[in-house]
């Protein structure tokens, strides 16, 4: 028995050494990583981080490189030959780019305000009240949010532009086409379900006692909603608001098709970028510069919002 065991032990060590020698570099590498997982994690972190940064930042850099190039230059070098920021000024001179930006920001702001107001009321009802048909209603909202907005374009276009009777019952009193309403109304509707779901979740978590206290102290239900529930749900409201704002600001389909091409026709920023493309020439450098400028508001918002999205506000408020 003991001899057997001895032999076996020997055999094992022998095998091991044998393995060590016969292992390819890759195998040794893998072995090393299995023994020291933190090494693997560090390498993975650098690798994944590198990929992520490259894929997200390189397009922006490329836009910058294009913006630096000479007008009409088709061979864009990786490193710009000269740093000439004049394109960023020219875009404002050649077309009313500021107005295009204003239009888009106006859409985004209006939609955000409308969505937050309506979704707050809906979120209050869904999150804090008990009523018959609550689940079917929430469910139908979910179903509606799955509809691709594009499928609704034709009927909406006819309703807004040609004023056909909606549902065969009523016509809109005014022609909405080429007005902000033609963009704000449908996009508000499309952004609504997500905002309602976010706010429902947040509002339902505010303890009943706080709302009761506010109502006893002298507010109505509405007062309690806007004085107590909304401020305490700040992270949720901020999230819903920012998502809506960004969605609307970058929205292309409705804002492009429901408006005219000119800034004065409430055309969005995408028309501003396309304005540098004429029948005969396309100023890629100006388009690139315009695209970069168009990104700025969203970039600022995200940076600011990061600070805003804070929770823990309700901590320590209640002893439950």
């Amino acid at each position: 028995m003991s001899i057997d065991a001895q032999t076996h032990e020997d055999a094992e060590t022998f095998d091991d050494r044998d393995d060590e020698e016969s292992k390819s570099p890759i195998k040794q590498w893998a072995d090393d990583w299995i023994r020291n997982p933190e090494k693997a994690y560090a390498v993975m972190l650098v690798f994944m981080g590198g990929v992520l940064l490259t894929t997200t930042l390189f397009p922006l850099y490329w836009l910058f490189a294009v913006a630096m190039a000479e007008p009409g230059q088709s061979n864009i070098p990786l490193i710009p030959n000269q740093i000439d920021l004049s394109a960023f000024i020219v875009i404002f001179q050649q077309v009313p780019f500021a107005r295009f930006m204003f239009n888009s920001l106006f859409y985004a702001t209006s939609v955000t305000v409308i969505v937050l107001l309506v979704a707050s009321l809906a979120g209050y009802a869904f999150g804090r009240l008990d009523f018959r048909g609550k689940m079917p209603l929430l469910f139908s909202l979910l179903v509606l949010s799955f509809f691709p907005p594009a499928t609704l374009f034709i009927p909406l276009f006819r309703a807004f532009n040609q004023q056909v009777p909606m549902l065969g019952v009523f016509t809109l009193p005014v022609e909405l086409y080429r007005t902000p309403g033609a963009v704000i109304a449908p996009i508000s509707a499309f952004a609504m379900p997500l905002a309602i779901f976010i706010l429902t979740t947040f509002y339902s978590q505010i303890p009943d006692g706080l709302e009761d206290a506010a109502r006893i102290e002298g507010t109505t239900r509405f007062g309690a909603l806007f004085r107590v529930i909304v401020p305490l749900s700040a992270p949720g409201v901020a999230t819903a608001g920012i998502l809506t704002f960004i969605t609307t600001y970058v929205e292309f389909f409705f804002s492009f098709l429901m408006t005219g091409d000119r800034a004065s026709d409430w055309a969005p920023i995408v028309n501003g970028v396309l304005a540098f493309q004429t029948r005969y020439t396309t100023r890629y450098d100006l388009q690139a510069a315009a695209s970069l400028v168009a990104i700025i508001p969203v970039a600022i918002l995200v940076v600011v919002a990061q600070e805003k999205i804070i929770s823990g506000l309700t901590q320590g408020a209640l002893k439950e």
Partner: peptide, 8 residues
């Protein structure tokens, strides 16, 4: 019972 002070 849960005091219900407005935490903000």
């Amino acid at each position: 019972q849960n005091i219900a002070l407005f935490p903000h």
